[in-house]
Amino acid sequence: MSTRKYTLKELESRTGFGSRTIRNYIDKGLLPGAYSRGRYASYGQEHLDRLLFLRKLKNRGKLPLDEVRRLLLQLAPEKIKAIAHGQEDIASIASKPHWDAPGHQYPEDEHAPSHEEAMDFCSMDSDSKPGASDYPAPPAADSALDYIRRLRSPGSPAEPGRSDSRLRQAARQLRQITPGHHPPTRRAKGEWWAAIEVTPDIELRARGLDGDDLAALESIADAFRALISRDF
């Protein structure tokens, strides 16, 4: 495995993504954080592979952020690397409808926007606008009044059984425990990390939590498990 380190500038020039975009991807969980902080923050091969992979994915058209995250979770690092460096075709992981339609390409003589850097107008893609994908609300089984009362009653989600609502609930709880969005700090020696298994391949790790806080993290793991096992 390569141990080569990259600066943000190098990542920018090699992938064509701007520094803000790269930081944004880190914030959104598509990339791991930098190995070190500050002006000379360093990044590794994994960052480069993922960014090149994201570049290829982006060139094929826009995908909802959730789906990109899911792809990154599902694919082995070797696969991401192979696609990133052109050893495998991105079509092998086609997950957007119509990608796999035979001969699907935008020809030169048509008025289609090129998906190479083109903006995607499809509002089925939830990434482009917050909340758009949530618009088709589930059929209402209860009244508006019941819904609001349930929503406003402490500790009870508005849509019982919906894992993403549960996830948000737990995330809110966790946010209250750790107020504010703070950047990762350096590890302290001898610090205790809680590790909660989501699936055999995924675990959540957190430090500085105990009691109720840990229960909140476990709720997140439960909801996360339910979320990724759901058929998207």
Partner: peptide, 18 residues
Amino acid sequence: LDPRELAEHSAALRERGV
């Protein structure tokens, strides 16, 4: 604060006639 969550509740209320 999360726009996605606001969207979800707003759509749910619209479905229920508000």
